[in-house]
Design a protein around this nucleic acid. Structure first.
Lengths: 198, 198
DNA sequence: TTTAAAAGTAAACAAACGTTTACTTATTTT
DNA sequence: AAAATAAGTAAACGTTTGTTTACTTTTAAA
């Protein structure tokens, strides 16, 4: 039998992300994607059941999977709190800043009911994404080092600013004065650490 | 001449938001909207040039306009820093929690290139949204009370957590234990204040 | 009371949509 | 070398898309 062309699978994913990033999820169509990837629409349906299946797999497996791997690089839940935080923030900053298409779909993951629902289900059924971060926060709460708040609340306090800072990095990209630098990220991280430490 | 039916205009806006919130921006169509609002598609085009115009006006004028008004209620840039922060956080929490359709479109404003671009342009050309907050932060930076960082960075540090907490409020709505309460919001606000104060 | 004109409707337009049908190509196994 | 079969294509399916055309209704002003 004929073996599948992995380059075409990769093209489907990367070009879908590119369209979403440049034109928006609401302007992604199967036919546009096929044309841009230089394949027949039918080829997409070999790998994916339908458009929703494509979007969900792209989001959960491709984007969130890679994002998780990148964020957790050189991170260990047993690190000292401030060190762990800085590692996570810098990993997030560098990965997202160099992967705008992935970042775009991640943002849609919080807007689109389809993607948000898929994320919740995955998070409940198959063990949470970013489990080491869960451990990290729990450990530091138990050690009495940081505020004793539910995990989801801590996550919002600690990681939403860095995601918004990356968004600002992209928004300011074409302006003369680039304000979101690694130095600003580290300063911001220290501010967040200061707030959360008891 | 026949006067325009304001109830129909209002229906267009509120039902559009409802569809976006329940089915996603990517599933809003002019025909679906017309049918749900019990009007002819043509009627939408009396008030709006086209679909993009509708979305932009809905986002900028309707949603962000009301959001701004609600957030700034009983707020004064001259308030003490902690008081101002708590006022802004509580206003945000109460308004968004009671206006899920508006919150949905606000989230799309950070995902969708169309809406994000419209926001940037409006923010630059016609004076910034949330100008009193700008003043508030600037004043407190100048007074040496809070970290001296660019306004956009301060905004990310201070307001992205509350928006994410509201998202979690909605995500947890149907679960037995509601964790995002006003008490949690105030505790979180104090943590953010502690971090940002010099 | 007629008239001007915007508001509004029902139905239709071409184009694009998600998806499938009918078929060809390429490769492994026999 | 033949048979089996998944990968892949080109073209089309019926539906829905955003938008418009042709027309009717409703009101304020003349």
């Amino acid at each position: 039998m004929r073996p599948k062309n992995l380059a075409k699978e990769e093209a489907i994913r990367s070009i879908a992300l590119q369209i979403i990033s440049e034109e928006g999820l609401e302007n992604l169509s199967m036919q546009k994607l096929a044309k841009a990837a230089n394949i027949s629409p039918r080829t997409i349906y070999i790998k994916y059941e339908n458009k929703e299946d494509l979007l969900i797999k792209l989001f959960i497996e491709e984007v969130l999977g890679n994002y998780e791997k990148a964020i957790l690089e050189n991170f260990d839940p047993k690190m000292a709190f401030a060190d762990g935080m800085k590692r996570l923030w810098l990993n997030t900053f560098h990965y997202l800043k160099n992967n705008k298409p992935a970042f775009s779909l991640i943002r849609y993951g919080k807007s689109s009911p389809l993607l948000n629902k898929a994320f919740q289900e995955k998070n409940i059924q198959q063990g949470a994404f970013f489990a080491p971060i869960h451990t990290f926060l729990k450990t530091n709460v138990r050690a009495g080092l940081i505020a004793d708040l539910p995990h989801d609340v801590l996550r919002a306090l600690i990681f939403s600013p860095i995601q918004d800072l990356v968004a600002e990095y992209f928004d300011h990209l074409d302006r003369p004065l680039q304000i979101i630098t690694e130095e600003v990220i580290l300063t911001s991280c220290e501010i967040v650490i200061k707030g959360i430490l008891k």
